[in-house]
Write a protein that binds this DNA or RNA. Structure first.
Length: 371
RNA sequence: GUGGGUGUAGCUCAAUGGUGGAGCACCUGACUGUGGCUCAGGGGGUUGAGGGUUCAAAUCCCUUCACUCACC
């Protein structure tokens, strides 16, 4: 019997939804943003800090952890939760994104993917069954089926073939799944609404505890992604969570919640923080810009995060230019704080029945930034 | 004091008579199921100073200044 359950508190097959995802390691409120901890660490932060910033669940990666330290090591040490000292829900990506991001290093067959390890060049095979087995070894609460994350642009024929492969892999993953945790299917189909619906229907026929939308933010225009998400979401079961993989910008999150998405993961707040790009309600700022050289103001006035409470832009710029690790930490704390507060704001707006004004206010601020 | 060497972008250095460049630094931008990486643009010069030779001088000649090494 699985410990996984989704309670839809408000909303339906489309439009903004409020919910709660329950797992063996606790629950998280949706709409939610999951910080990315690919290698069993949210870069630069401790699990306690990630928790304090408001994150209730995080993401880790099957492919990376399988290569190093190895899923067997993690299993022997009591699973990912104990290994990294994070006792909340963990979602693991299957390695499907590495099919895309490491496309130079892999060959794809109906059986699975053969990677040339980016660490030592050795050959590593990943099949749907192995991906599930590794994720079970890791002990993740939400596992993802192995999929092919298709590049953009792709022809209709390419997207159709890719979709069929992912669908066949999804069926094999479900077959291999022992049912102790959750397994999510992944909708593919490129930029073709017709194929997205075909993919969604195929996955629903197999049946999963939750559904993800994959293959986005790979170079397509944002408006195209919004249209595709809006077209696909209503065709997924209303009582199952929807997860938009690898997305996105603050604007992406608001637009996707508006179209019925429940949760997200993205490297953007953490990676951009390390590169000096910081998110604020007034837009993004690059802390390395000379304009901040002697600026005593915090990143964002009124922000409750530790970086804004104690440190000036001038100091953060200095740390960033010096490449001090403390600067990476403070920037990451701010960006994750911003993302978590954005999600909390969305949940409150939906719960209070003022989603439309929240959304329109956000859009207006976005437009104002461009002028 | 004598003899030698070196003076070119913020720094380290290319360019041996024919439109003064590179790396780093600096300044902007990008980053979406993670490489802290990387990538794309940009600003920068009276070639220490002054004079001469030449169609043409960073480059050859003279003077001078600075730095540096060796020797009195």
């Amino acid at each position: 019997m699985s410990d996984f359950r989704f309670d839809l508190i408000s909303g339906g097959p489309s439009g903004p939804r409020l919910g709660r995802v329950h797992t063996a390691h606790g629950a998280f409120e949706t709409p939610a943003f999951l910080p990315v901890g690919t290698q069993a660490a949210v870069k630069t932060l401790s699990p306690e800090e990630v928790r304090e910033l408001g994150a209730q669940a995080i993401l880790a990666n099957t492919y990376h952890l399988h290569l190093r330290p190895g899923s067997g090591v993690v299993r022997e040490l009591g699973g990912l939760h104990r290994f990294m000292n994070w006792n909340g829900p963990i979602l693991t990506d299957s390695g499907g994104f590495q099919v895309f991001s490491l496309s130079e290093l892999r060959t794809l067959t109906p059986e699975g993917v053969t990677f040339r390890s980016h660490l030592d060049g050795s050959s590593r095979f990943l099949s749907p069954e192995l991906a599930v087995g590794i994720q079970e070894d890791l002990g993740s609460d939400i596992m993802m089926v192995l999929d092919e994350c298709l590049q953009y642009p792709a022809s209709f024929e390419q997207a159709a073939a890719s979709l069929e492969l992912t669908l066949a892999w999804a069926a094999r993953c479900k077959e291999a799944w022992r049912g102790r945790n959750a397994l999510f299917g992944i909708v593919q189909g490129g930029a073709y609404p017709e194929l997205r619906l075909r993919s969604a229907a195929g996955l629903c026929a197999i049946g999963f505890p939750g559904y993800a939308l994959g293959g986005f933010s790979v170079g397509e225009p944002p408006a195209l992604m919004y249209d595709l998400v809006g077209a696909t979401a209503p065709h997924l079961p209303a009582d199952k969570p929807r997860y938009l993989m690898g997305v996105g910008t603050p604007r992406d999150l608001v637009e996707a919640v508006d179209r019925g998405i429940d949760f997200f993961d993205c490297v953007m707040p953490t990676r951009n923080a390390r590169n000096g790009s910081l998110f604020t309600a007034a837009g993004t700022l690059n802390i390395r810009n000379a304009a901040h050289a002697a600026d005593p103001a915090p990143i964002e006035t009124g922000c409750p995060c530790a970086a804004c409470r104690g440190y000036s832009r001038a100091y953060l710029r200095h740390l960033s230019l010096c490449r001090e690790t403390f600067g990476l930490r403070l920037n990451t704390i701010h960006n994750l704080s911003y993302y978590q507060r954005l999600m909390a704001g969305m949940r409150e707006a939906i719960a209070a029945g003022r989603w439309t004004s929240f959304r329109d206010g956000f859009r207006a601020a976005q437009t104002a930034k461009k002028d």
